[in-house]
């Protein structure tokens, strides 16, 4: 077992994450209208995208299925106790995407260079680095972890609840730039 994991599991039993994640702990099923309506509209948009047929019968079927889906899982998209993602956040997130694509492209070129290099074994130097992140909410941390996985030479090994990250990076150059710029950008997106 890795030391990072043990430490992290001590982290995980701290009380804080229960506040974030109260989905399991509420036995009373309360019906909440606003998540239901918002989920319904998102699902309706996706239904129209999937379907591509705009006659009455298919629209009727679509409304029925969107009602079913939002009845089952509106609590999944908008769990209790977590502040919902606003439209503003999504717009900012769209602004973050081009930078991410650029980074991904650079990452691909980097790994491609490593792959086809004849003396690859001398270039790579895999190691694990650990750092603390200051991001708070679940979604921002997940975004951060996935972005790390997609960008140059790094893969998230462990993303703890308290903000501990362990990252496997393939050579020295790619490990240095963490957390750095990406964390700033993501914290700007999610207002933290």
């Amino acid at each position: 077992m890795n030391a990072a994991n043990k430490k992290a599991s001590i982290d995980d039993i701290r009380p804080d994450h229960n506040k974030n994640n109260s989905f399991h702990h509420t036995n009373k099923k309360q019906f909440a209208l606003i998540p239901f309506v918002v989920t319904f509209f998102i699902m309706a948009c996706f239904w129209l995208l999937f379907s591509g047929k705009f006659d009455g019968f298919h629209i009727f079927l679509g409304i029925g299925s969107c009602l079913i889906v939002s009845g089952i899982s509106s609590r999944l998209l908008f769990p209790r106790g977590v502040p919902p993602l606003l439209l503003k956040t999504w717009l900012k997130f769209a602004g973050y995407l081009p930078w991410l694509f650029n980074q991904i492209f650079l990452a691909n070129l980097h790994v491609l260079y490593l792959t086809f290099h004849p003396r690859m074994m001398e270039l790579i130097n895999p190691k694990i680095i650990k750092f603390n992140s200051r991001l708070k909410s679940d979604v921002s941390r997940t975004t951060f972890a996935n972005s790390i996985t997609l960008t140059p030479g790094t893969i998230t090994i462990h993303a703890g609840v308290m903000g501990k990250f362990a990252v496997h990076c393939i050579d020295d150059k790619s490990g240095q730039s963490l957390p750095g710029q990406m964390e700033n950008k993501i914290s700007k997106v999610f207002d933290e």
Binding site: A8, F46, F50, S65, V69, S70, S73, L77
Partner: peptide
């Protein structure tokens, strides 16, 4: 199992879309 953040959040975000896709497949 310690609370695995990435998997849980991804599942939470993606499940409703899978369900709406399934209903689309049934209806079409």
């Amino acid at each position: 199992i310690p609370y695995d953040l990435v998997i849980r959040t991804t599942c939470r975000m993606i499940i409703p879309f899978i369900q709406v896709f399934a209903l689309y497949v049934i209806a079409h």
